[in-house]
């Protein structure tokens, strides 16, 4: 745990000395604000909830989170600093966990950058805090799932752009897999696709119900891809 925290602090420092996380958060917040106020005509519909924000979040995060994750390993590989890391006494799993947690702080920062909206809703109306908390909790879990995929893909290539593009595609597929097909898809397949659809799971939490099944789903994705990340880095050491 101590090792993980040490890596986390180091990664956090290196992340926040660059303007990138701030820019990502600002662009993310500006886009979400534009979408909510201009496209969803938030002040015209006058609904005291954050549905318009959370409705788009799974898709926007599918682009933003891979952008945060793309450089986490690719840059180490490209700059060959990964060799130094491999020879350090820190275990790979601690490296992966530390990087993941540091990147999660950036994801949380992006989400926090949308806080003006719930504040607006609270001032202008009577917001139900349950769905709001559920929405942000779901967004963190969804961000964690996307991030673990992005980190794994980042560890597979030295090219950040490739990591980003493949990450975006993977996250969007995960978000929309429940919508693939039509009624002709058939019941069982449809049910299966919906059960692995991140957006459906996120929507379930964003309505204000934290179900162990949904948390376990996101936890499983995070655990699985972080494990693949560890294995990927280990394999690089053995190669």
């Amino acid at each position: 745990m101590r090792e993980t925290l040490a890596v986390f602090r180091k990664e956090l420092r290196s992340l926040f000395v660059s303007p990138i996380p701030y820019l990502v958060a600002i662009v993310f917040s500006a886009f979400m604000t534009w979408f909510v106020f201009e496209k969803q005509i938030f002040l015209v519909l006058r609904q005291a909830n954050l549905d318009s924000l959370f409705g788009l979040l799974p898709i926007v995060m599918a682009v933003v989170v891979p952008a945060i994750a793309m450089r986490m390993w690719s840059e180490e590989i490209r700059g060959e600093t990964i060799e130094t890391l491999m020879t350090s006494p820190v275990r790979v799993r601690h490296l992966v966990a530390g990087k993941f947690l540091a990147a999660m702080v950036v994801v949380a920062l992006c989400l926090a950058a949308t806080a003006a909206l719930p504040v607006t809703v609270s001032v202008l109306g009577d917001i139900d805090t349950g769905p709001m908390l559920g929405g942000y909790l779901g967004a963190l879990l969804l961000g964690g799932a996307y991030l673990s995929i992005g980190l794994w893909l980042s560890s597979k290539t030295r090219n950040q752009i490739v990591a980003f593009l493949v990450g975006v595609v993977a996250c969007i597929v995960l978000a929309l897999v429940g919508q693939i097909g039509s009624s002709a898809t058939g019941g069982d397949l449809q049910r299966f696709l919906s059960s692995i659809c991140a957006r459906d799971r996120f929507d379930a939490i964003a309505r204000g119900v934290v179900d162990l099944r949904d948390v376990a789903y996101f936890g499983s994705i995070i655990a699985f891809f972080l494990y693949l990340n560890v294995e990927s880095v280990e394999n690089r050491r053995h190669a």
Binding site: L133, G208, S220
Partner: peptide, 20 residues
């Protein structure tokens, strides 16, 4: 993980955060 999710899928453990 799939088996774990399938097992959890049989349980109903959830927190309803809505005010009402």
């Amino acid at each position: 993980l799939v088996l774990g999710n399938a097992l959890i899928g049989r349980t109903v453990v959830r927190a309803d955060l809505t005010e009402d």
